[in-house]
Design a protein around this nucleic acid. Sequence first.
DNA 1: TCAAAAGTGTTTGTGGTACACCCATGG
DNA 2: CCATGGGTGTACCACAAACACTTTTGA
Lengths: 223, 223
Amino acid sequence: MTADHPKPSVTVDVVILTLRGDALQVLLVKRGLMPYKGRWAIPGGFVRIDESLEAAARRELQEETNVSDVYLEQLYTFGDPQRDPRGRVISVAYIALVPAPLAVQAGTDAREARWWSVNNLPLLAFDHTHILQYALTRLRYKIEYSAVGFRLLPDTFTLSELQRAYEIVLNEPLDKRNFRRRIMEAQVIEPTGEHRTGEGRPAKLYRFRDDAVAEVKARRLFP
Amino acid sequence: MTADHPKPSVTVDVVILTLRGDALQVLLVKRGLMPYKGRWAIPGGFVRIDESLEAAARRELQEETNVSDVYLEQLYTFGDPQRDPRGRVISVAYIALVPAPLAVQAGTDAREARWWSVNNLPLLAFDHTHILQYALTRLRYKIEYSAVGFRLLPDTFTLSELQRAYEIVLNEPLDKRNFRRRIMEAQVIEPTGEHRTGEGRPAKLYRFRDDAVAEVKARRLFP
DNA sequence: TCAAAAGTGTTTGTGGTACACCCATGG
DNA sequence: CCATGGGTGTACCACAAACACTTTTGA
């Protein structure tokens, strides 16, 4: 094999999302080099020749956040020939969901990196605005019929915290009783036996059940 | 830019599906070269340096089937370093849905190409069995909540033909009255005014309405 | 007039949605 | 004892699923 034609470069870009301060936030890095120097961008980098795509994505994630064992899903591959002015670069984009409190300080290296609310984003480099919008569409869609919402929370959480997470992602208020009933019926969480104390009545803590069937069938368009 | 590290090769592979003889069928080509010489494979090829991924997929599709204007959707990108024994090859896989009667003879060039029922497949080259299974899962999933099923039928069709298409893809029988009621309520098709004559009572012909809202919201896991 | 496929309504059950009050704790 | 957030049940409505017979044509 080994085509005699020129090969494109392949990168992975990882849309890292978390919940912070009642908002869905995304981690962006400031570009220090041309092109788009000074613009904010989705973190990413070249795929090494002997590393799988997911491994490359996890490596980028680790470099930026120091967290591992997070939800990671391939989003889409962007391959427009004009998307990078330097030449042909194909980007395999991933979504990562980081539990809220683990999303501590980002950017251990020299690069400037910070969290941005998805409701208040800067101008991004390359086609990254497009990639990010696609990621948000996918997340909002997926959270409705699977249990990815849990991946935005720590191991244990209260039902109110879980409901709040769903409300932030879906950007709409949810009914407390209906929310609780459905989530209990779905049997995707179990009580830890602990309680979280604070202002007001202490709340039961729950954890996600790893053995749970976390998907629900879509309503059929046709019977 | 242009990394100084070695670059992977990038191919597109197109899972071309159609309905033939009451079965869902996929177009496969027989490999004439090593590796996997003599094995059947999903048609594909290298992405040219100045061509988008979708353009590459359409080019492959055209080379194999001589049809254009068909449904084409990016499926997933497969990038395991070991998936091709010749070296690092990343494959961006697409699904194409070809209308039943247009799916005429495939393979204009010297290569051997033929349709295979997805229920009776040969041993495939590379990780193509995996790619194909993933494509079928996606199709079956998607046909339940969107209107892609129409893309397997010609421009005009009867309700019985449409129902049969759904039954084949979903691999389960559907109730005739419920099927007709729902599809009419969804307002995704309209009568052409013509009839198809044959054995038994002539059937009304319908066409798909391009302006139709062809997606349905998934049932929420949580309210 | 028979075979073959097209076409058509109703009933019953389940699940979704809307809605308001009492409980446990800390200050 | 009061403020704060946690926790609980029911009634109504809409949609999904199950089900069998009549109609139209060609042979």
